[in-house]
Design a protein around this nucleic acid. Structure first.
Lengths: 336, 336
DNA sequence: TTGTAAGCGTTATCAA
DNA sequence: TTGATAACGCTTACAA
């Protein structure tokens, strides 16, 4: 159903019909009524496409995320979607299934849609800035990084304050007697992991310890299985460690189950800490010490940052303080 | 960056530039090269909006879901997004936060976008078919219901075969000695719950038992807390029951924790079964008997159904067989 | 108060 | 091999 059709049906010009439908002044009350009624009866809804073409203002947001199977990400996506929707934006949404190639494809699609802003949760396993981000710049589309960034791209990033929380984790573990930390997570080549690694190292050094490459275990996927296997391997290879930090809940439980099977006590022999705090304690086999990330706050900052970008303001990175929730999995280490 | 700009830059007409960029015959090889190069340098990406306006073929899908905080739904959404993306469709995605009013708003937006198809996971707590679905019909936009439907709307539905799996649950519980079933889930007014209720009743009747209104506990939200509270209330009010079925994992653990606190053994005193099979057993406090829903299969049928609708074929409802996974929470009932 | 006409960025048809 | 030109559905000056 188009404007023309309802103009025809009510015997007015398209211009008049348009004015009536958009509640603009300068239309006879009677005419307006007739037009509105016809529109309702015929089920007329103005074409966004056509409107966007003449308006030049899409109110569309491109949201690209590696995947939403993790508790953290699905909630983050929902929260972002919700906030933007309330502000009148629509979301074009895609996941990359962690495959970098889709990132390029989707960025192009977003440009094609002339979105007002792109929100990008990086998927690529290497850091050198991908050249397709250039296209955004050339088309004047602002970019907001979410929880990680590519280097050399001039765009703000909204993220957890990892430096701070990694420091907190280290302090906590050491205070409980654990001093051989292992971190399991995504490729060290990506910015997010790199920050964690250097933060752990810095914090450890303050205690005369350190966190080297060997203490970082790269998982190809962040799930139960891969963490389970990685932990089994650690034990088999007789690596020295007494605490494991993982990037999310599922991986933490993968590690936990492997430890249990090998008769290592959690806590006691090994402490386990994970990022995320999204499963109610009553659900899990053990209440783990974890990092609570304030998702609504994060989403709020994404909205704020995006809106600033869209209004051409200069915008700064935004780091959100996360909170360490101490529970059972990091109780004091057994005396040796 | 527009066609006009690159036409200007390369000193050809827009028509020629368009032909060159779309790889159509009838363009001098040299000209084509110049155009292509200019396009690359300038970061030209054709406007989807403009293209859609002249093409009349959007390859856009509107996907509307109550929320994606549940494990089941976030996976389902990701799977659907993935399959459609592979087929060249884009997804406009929104959640309704379980608020019916957003359903109306989003359906209008989808029409405005002239999407090729709407996929609707119902949010409304009442069943009478909402009138905004009329607008879809008037604008010739096919609709596919996902996991539930509104009555009186002529559109196919892709869903778990609830009748069958409810029957299976009842048979299983009875075989283990449990005969007083309670189901906790969304409002009985919605189609999905109604089907479960009538299926439970039918299956129970075959054993000389029955499932009445009293056996259905309506949860305002499907989460840990509300199931926890509902279970506490059941106990306080001394209702007779020896088995609880819930609509997802979180609610099942809410019930489980309430039972444990009241010193009821699971299994033994009470059996617990839930829909979903999405948390690795090693994560949970108890390995629960549950209903496995094949999400990739479901997403596949959604794609198939949507494509059939879009090509104007007549389309049937599609029921996907779910599987009962028997684990520890329904082991035999204690002798009384 | 209403209608005409131009423009938004494309594609497609037809002449040149 | 190319370039006008119309068309898609809408908004908005401007003219009537």
């Amino acid at each position: 159903v188009t404007l023309k059709e309802i103009a025809l049906a009510t015997d007015v010009s398209e211009a008049t019909a348009s004015l009536a439908l958009n509640d603009r002044p300068g239309v006879n009350a009677d005419t307006r009524l007739r037009v509105l009624q016809a529109a309702r009866e015929m089920g007329y809804v103005p074409s966004y496409t056509a409107k966007a073409l003449s308006d030049k203002n899409t109110k569309l947001i491109g949201l690209l995320v590696p995947d939403i199977r993790s508790l953290f990400r699905s909630r983050l996506v929902q929260e972002i979607e919700h906030l933007f929707r309330e502000r009148g934006y629509e979301i074009i949404f895609a996941t990359t299934d962690n495959e970098g190639k889709y990132e390029s494809i989707m960025i192009h699609k977003f440009v094609s849609f002339r979105v007002s802003c792109v929100i990008l949760y990086p998927s690529l396993k290497q850091n050198p800035s991908p050249d397709y981000l250039e296209i955004l710049k050339k088309n004047n589309i602002p970019l907001v990084f979410l929880n990680g960034r590519y280097e050399g791209v001039n765009a703000p990033c909204v993220s957890i304050d990892q430096v701070k929380v990694c420091q907190e984790i280290v302090e906590h573990l050491i205070s409980r007697g654990y001093s051989h930390l292992v971190y399991m997570g995504s490729s060290a080549k990506i910015n997010n992991s790199r920050i964690k690694i250097s933060s752990f190292d810095k914090a450890m050094q303050q205690h005369g310890l350190n966190f080297v490459e060997e203490n970082f275990i790269e998982l190809s996927v962040n799930n139960f299985e891969s963490a389970y296997n990685a932990t089994k391997k650690l034990i088999k290879e007789k690596k020295i460690f007494d605490s494991i930090v993982t990037s999310d809940t599922y991986t933490a439980f993968g590690a936990y189950n492997a430890l249990k099977e090998e008769n290592l006590k959690v806590p006691g022999d090994v402490a386990v800490v994970h990022f995320d705090n999204l499963l109610a304690p009553g659900i899990c086999a053990i209440n783990m010490t974890c990092v609570e990330q304030d998702i609504p706050q994060m989403a709020g900052h994404v909205l704020k940052t995006a809106e600033e970008c869209m209004s051409q303001k200069k915008v700064e990175d935004c780091y959100i303080t996360a909170k360490l929730i101490v529970r059972d999995s990091t109780a004091g280490k057994k005396a040796e």
